[in-house]
């Protein structure tokens, strides 16, 4: 593989840098459909959907759940700015389900102490997490 060009993939969320890695190929959940990126790609800024980001490095392939955002491609550096991101394999299905149930419960409880908007965001996140997880198992 000597001399083969690689892409640098950075996944950055407001909380922290999730990933910084050299990879061969990336598929982004772009707004108008999935978009593949190989080394030497033209300079590009794309809006991202809620969806799955895949990347391939040699023989390993991994998936991330991406909660919307932007991707910038410049000089073989792909920077993904997402609201939140999670490695599909690290998503705990039971935990996501529990969070989903929790969010639903707090949304329907009408308790003044509960932060409605926060609960709604949690709900959306839990749904995507489950979606990504289930999609993965279907392959």
């Amino acid at each position: 593989m000597a001399g083969k060009k690689k892409l640098k993939l950075q996944i950055i969320t407001p909380q922290k840098q999730v990933l910084d890695k050299e990879v061969d190929f990336i598929a982004l959940p772009a707004y108008n459909g999935e978009m593949g990126v190989l080394p030497g790609h033209v300079q590009y800024v794309a809006k991202l959907n809620y969806g799955v980001l895949r990347y391939k490095d040699g023989n390993t392939q991994e998936e991330f759940a991406i909660m919307g955002g932007l991707a910038e491609i410049a000089h073989d550096v792909v920077s993904v700015f997402a609201e939140d991101a999670a490695l599909a394999e690290e998503i705990d299905e039971a935990e996501a389900k529990q969070k989903l149930a929790q969010a639903k419960a707090s949304l329907s409880s009408h308790d003044a102490d509960i932060d409605m908007e926060l609960a709604e965001m949690e709900l959306k996140k839990a749904l995507l997490m489950l979606k990504v997880k289930n999609k993965k198992t279907k392959f």
């Binding site: 772009a30 707004y31 108008n32 978009m35 033209v42 300079q43 590009y44 800024v45 794309a46 809006k47 919307g68 955002g69 932007l70 910038e72 410049a74």
Partner: peptide, 13 residues
């Protein structure tokens, strides 16, 4: 840069 879907959309995001 090329913007997808458009510069305006990117700006709003």
């Amino acid at each position: 840069f090329i913007f997808e879907p458009s510069m305006l959309d990117i700006f709003l995001t």
